[in-house]
């Protein structure tokens, strides 16, 4: 249910990224080119978050619910205070799954290394 006309937010960001890659990278050198490359990576990250964000949010909430925590802050506190010491293997598996989801947005290539 989207109010806005096309293109979607993801497509808008994509169009800017493509312009940076096509025209700006080729026309710059040195520091400016490096910062253009950083910008391209940032926009690609935003595209992935727009694409994957909703399902990741749901999966994250389900993992937290399995541990009886409302959010990461509560989970972090309970790990520190030892309240989850009898189920650490499960905690580690769920937290690592969250981390993999974050990487799928931030830098999917990192998961292949």
């Amino acid at each position: 249910m989207n109010l806005h006309d096309m293109p979607s937010a993801e497509q808008l960001v994509e169009s800017v990224r493509e312009w940076l890659e096509r025209d700006v990278l080729a026309g710059t050198t040195g520091r400016l080119q490096f910062h253009t490359r950083v910008a391209v990576n940032v926009l690609a990250m935003v595209e992935r978050e727009l694409r994957l964000g909703d399902s990741q949010r749901l999966a994250h909430a389900q993992r937290l619910a399995q541990l009886g925590c409302a959010d990461d802050a509560e989970l972090a506190r309970r790990i520190r205070e030892g309240e989850l010491d009898d189920q650490l293997a499960q905690v580690r598996a769920l937290v690592w799954a969250d981390v993999r989801d974050k990487l799928a947005v931030a830098n999917p290539k990192y998961l292949e290394r």
Partner: peptide
């Protein structure tokens, strides 16, 4: 700086490396 901003999303690389 967008370069500094982007570094915030590298935290999960370290989390993954820790695992």
């Amino acid at each position: 700086s967008h370069e500094l901003a982007a570094i915030g999303r590298r935290v999960c690389e370290n989390e993954h490396d820790l695992f």
